[in-house]
Design a protein around this nucleic acid. Structure first.
Lengths: 101, 101
DNA sequence: TTTATATGTTTAAATGTTTAAACATATAAT
DNA sequence: ATTATATGTTTAAACATTTAAACATATAAA
């Protein structure tokens, strides 16, 4: 196993963490339907509180899974999946070439 | 967003959970180097206790990320990554066809 | 049958995550 | 300036996860 494989694997941890939570998956699925949405709009369509939604949005913002468009006092969130998808593809490539026999 | 996309997304949660832990990643990387290994052999090469290793192995066994070969009193663990890799590929396909514009 | 070895399970403590209430900040409108 | 609205942050409680010690089980050898 090369160091690069280890690095790629480790680098995926924040993404795996972000995607392993049903509340965050719900937000992603909601944004895939209607984009962009503000924190309040997301909270209205959820059974979680606005601060809880804000917390989950922060986690996803930090790994660049979401992007923000500020409009006056409102922040509109939309998906930004390309980078994360590329990360997963890279992991799959390395696993297939180094771990599967 | 179709129901199938939601199902695939949800179905990946146990895998994301399993892969989001550094201790479990270490076990996977170790098995990618030397396979198969017993619980004791894995624990010897780790700084975690044997019961902790056993616990993490159980989590990975439950999602069929590992397979066991019993030899007398020992259980030899090896990777079984095909199914999980297919699951990730399926997720990527759906995200690319339904969520990326 | 008894003993030794390998493993899994239960339990309790430590740690981390998730949540909502309360508070703080910042922009827009009056 | 003051008020209203949208959002983020801090905090404390509830909840879940992780860990290692103690215990239980099961196979193999003497």
């Amino acid at each position: 196993m090369e160091q690069k494989a280890i690095d790629v694997f480790r680098a995926c941890i924040p993404l795996f963490n972000a995607l392993s939570d049903p509340a965050r998956q719900d937000i992603i699925l909601l944004l895939a339907e209607q984009e962009p949405l503000s924190v309040n709009e997301i909270a209205e369509q959820s059974n979680l509180s606005r601060p809880a939604i804000s917390h989950h949005l922060k986690i996803m913002r930090e790994i660049q899974l979401l992007q923000i468009e500020q409009k006056g006092t409102q922040r509109y969130y939309s998906l930004s999946l390309n980078q994360s998808v590329e990360q997963l593809k890279q992991l799959i490539d390395i696993v297939e070439s180094e771990c599967i026999f």
